[in-house]
Amino acid sequence: MNETLRSVDGRTELRIERRLGHAPAKVWRALTEPSELAAWFPAVVELDLRLDGRIAFSFEQGEDGFVEDPDNAGVIRAYDPPRLLEYNWGVEVLRWELEPDGDGCVMTLTATFDDRPAAASYTAGWLGCFSALDLMLGGSGEEPVDYAPRHEHYVAKFGLDAGTITRTAEEWTIRFERQFAKPKERIWAHLSGGRTPAPGQPAPQGFVAKGIEPGPVAEVSEPTSLVCGPITWKLRDGNGGARVILTHTGPLAEDPAEPYDAWHDLLEAIADQA
């Protein structure tokens, strides 16, 4: 297995390679026939299997008419059986390539998308799908791995735990956007210590990194946002769990390096403990 992440023309490109002990023609059927896709692909697929053919994705638990959502439809952009299949899923582009390799083949998925913080969840999810694909084809698959540890492995591998520091003429702003493998309600409960923050009260300790003096709570909307002085927490549903956006603004006279490290450590502790 080989996974890489890079930026290309302002978008994020995830590339996953896997050798399968199956001939390209056999894997090609698994990539293109709806009855076989149903055993491993993350959505139900309807497709007109030709160049420029329509492709649509739906979910068994989805809303009525979900396949008509433009985010869940696309067209086949490249079609060269049994070697190449490329299509878009809304704004995401999925490119599948098969190369013969001895008695099997190497399958490469290149996924191009805009939501870089979701790259670890996409990777963890696709690897689970690949294991199901291999099992469906008669292979051994992989030993099951829980989603959360796999997700956190790729957060670290791809550097998705890093934040940014930007500066203006008067201040700096630290910003982290971090995907978690746990729901936002669970993250909020961990941060709040089980109590409801209220304006004018001190911020719950879970929301405060070591060495930071946040000031009292100014705004709160449980379980999605909390503002305390120069610090803002925002939580929403992301891909596979909570998406947390944390910002902290300070004067240029103060060095942002220490608060940056403190916030980074707090977010990683949330991943481990929440």
Rank of each mutant, 00 (worst) to 15 (best):
Leu191Glu: 02
Thr196Trp: 05
Thr196Gly: 04
Thr196Val: 15
Pro197Gln: 04
Pro197Met: 06
Ala198Cys: 05
Pro199Leu: 03
Pro202Arg: 00
Pro202Glu: 01
Pro204Leu: 01
Gly206Met: 08
Phe207Gln: 00
Phe207Gly: 00
Phe207Met: 01
Phe207Leu: 00
Val208Met: 10
Val208Leu: 10
Val208Ser: 08
Ala209Trp: 01
Ala209Tyr: 04
Val217Ser: 12
Val217Trp: 09
Ala218Phe: 00
Glu219Met: 13
Glu219Ala: 14
Val220Glu: 10
Val220Lys: 02
Ser221Leu: 15
Glu222Arg: 12
Ser225Trp: 08
Val227Asn: 02
Val227Phe: 00
Cys228His: 15
Cys228Thr: 14
Gly229Lys: 13
Pro230Phe: 08
Trp233Ile: 10
Trp233Pro: 10
Lys234Gln: 15
Leu235Trp: 11
Asp237Gly: 14
Gly238Gln: 14
Gly241Glu: 11
Gly241Asp: 10
Ala242Pro: 11
Val244Tyr: 03
Ile245Gly: 03
Ile245Asp: 10
His248Arg: 07
Thr249Glu: 10
Thr249Asn: 03
Pro251Tyr: 00
Pro251Cys: 03
Ala253Phe: 11
Glu254Pro: 08
Glu254Trp: 11
Asp255Asn: 13
Asp255Ser: 12
Pro256Lys: 01
Ala257Gln: 10
Glu258Tyr: 08
Glu258Cys: 05
Pro259Ile: 07
Tyr260Lys: 05
Tyr260Asp: 06
Asp261Trp: 12
Ala262Asn: 09
His264Arg: 11
Ala269Phe: 00
Ile270His: 04
Ala271Val: 06
